[in-house]
Design a protein around this nucleic acid. Structure first.
Lengths: 140, 140
DNA sequence: GTCAAAATGGAGCCTTGGCTACATCTCTAA
DNA sequence: TTAGAGATGTAGCCAAGGCTCCATTTTGAC
């Protein structure tokens, strides 16, 4: 093999770990976009309820989103996405659909596909996404 | 729909979050089993190198493994798995292979399949695993 | 057999992502 | 128009999972 096993493996685990840290932000951005589209506004309490966490936790994470340049929010005035946030939401939404569609195509029940996709989607690389697209096109 | 959207969604996110907390333990158990099988022993330093973390981090997590009843370790004497740990390692290994095989079957390049599986495997439910098996059998 | 290198373990620090409890603001219904 | 409900924000706590730095133990080379 080209590289020592341990280096290959370490880099894989490292990637998985860093994916974990962005997973939460992706979930928030996706949900905020959804709330803005369907409810017209994204309030911390709604975000908290949808994610199943306390409102305090939601507010704290929203401030992380702001720090990351993904969202804007003024006190007592709801949350909005920046351009960067919108772009991320779009990518995340597309990826989510693709993952669910592939799972469905493989024969995973709808409910399991939706639930598992919530975790899986954060670990699907670009190369894998492309393979997913090809796979779906191939059986369309 | 049977349940309010927000409850369904909250439970999905909740599941994904709790999967995250077990993911690390699963990785450790899988790796320790691998080291025991291939090297005859699992030393904290090797674990750390393979995972790409500091040895101190590895040691701390091994003590979590002990607390969880998955591993045993005496000072300066390497790490071993309990029966419960062995069983978990076996399940994790099987699942890992299944995920990689499905990704490969779909057309994901080997390297991406191995790398992405490292993250994906922790979020694949029992129902999805079964669908994966059926899918592979169906095209064998 | 000794001593230096390597492995191991521990202490203490940071960030993240949870929580509860409390304080403050907004808004709506009477 | 004003009280009370509900939403929002703040503070302080916890555990997990990283890290570095330091002390100790083991081990291997001479």
């Amino acid at each position: 093999m080209a590289l020592p096993t341990e280096l290959i493996q370490a880099s894989r685990f490292g990637k998985a770990r860093s994916a974990q840290s962005t997973a939460l932000l992706e979930d928030y951005v996706e949900l905020i976009a959804d709330l803005l589209a369907n409810e017209g506004e994204a309030r911390p309490t709604d975000i908290a309820r949808r994610l199943g966490v306390s409102h305090a936790t939601a507010i704290k994470t929203v401030s992380r989103l702001k720090r990351a340049g993904l969202a804007t929010a003024r006190p007592y005035r709801g949350v909005f996405l920046t351009e960067k946030g919108e772009a991320l939401a779009q990518r995340v939404r597309t990826r989510h659909r693709l993952v669910v569609d592939v799972l469905r195509a493989i024969g995973v029940p709808l409910e399991s596909a939706e639930a598992d996709a919530e975790g899986i989607e954060h670990y699907v690389s670009e190369a894998t996404l492309q393979a997913f697209s090809r796979f779906l096109r191939g059986r369309a």
